[in-house]
């Protein structure tokens, strides 16, 4: 139901008027392209950004730096650095 996958922004357009020209983006995931509405994102994406798409709307623009950080953290745990006390996630 709330299936939502990250899709890459190819281009954005519109946005000059929320009523007559709402902002939209063309997004791609593995060659599948879709036009999605950007009414709901709180940060306007640009080409190369990744959006989480749900039922034709982008609900979020992924934070590339946070993605990198969490992956680093996972890899750090995976390599099981002995005696290093880590806090697993932010809170």
């Amino acid at each position: 139901m709330c299936l939502a996958i990250p899709m890459k922004v190819i281009e954005t357009s519109g946005g000059t008027d929320s009523l007559t020209d709402p902002p939209v983006a063309i997004v791609d995931a593995d060659g599948i392209r879709r036009k999605v509405r950007l009414d709901l994102v709180d940060r306007m994406p640009g080409p190369g950004d990744y959006l989480i798409i749900h039922a034709g709307f982008a609900v979020n623009c992924l934070d590339a730096r946070e993605a990198e950080r969490s992956l680093e953290l996972m890899n750090e745990i995976a390599s099981s650095v002995p005696h290093v006390r880590h806090r697993t996630c932010s809170n």
């Binding site: 009414d39 994102v41 989480i52 609900v59 934070d63 946070e66 969490s70 697993t88 932010s90 809170n91």
Partner: peptide
């Protein structure tokens, strides 16, 4: 007992304010 955010690339503490305003 706390809420650990382990999905920080998508989730913030305050969430999507624009969506909630709508």
């Amino acid at each position: 007992y706390r809420v650990d955010n382990c999905y920080t690339r998508a989730v913030t503490a305050a969430g999507n304010l624009k969506a909630r305003e709508l």
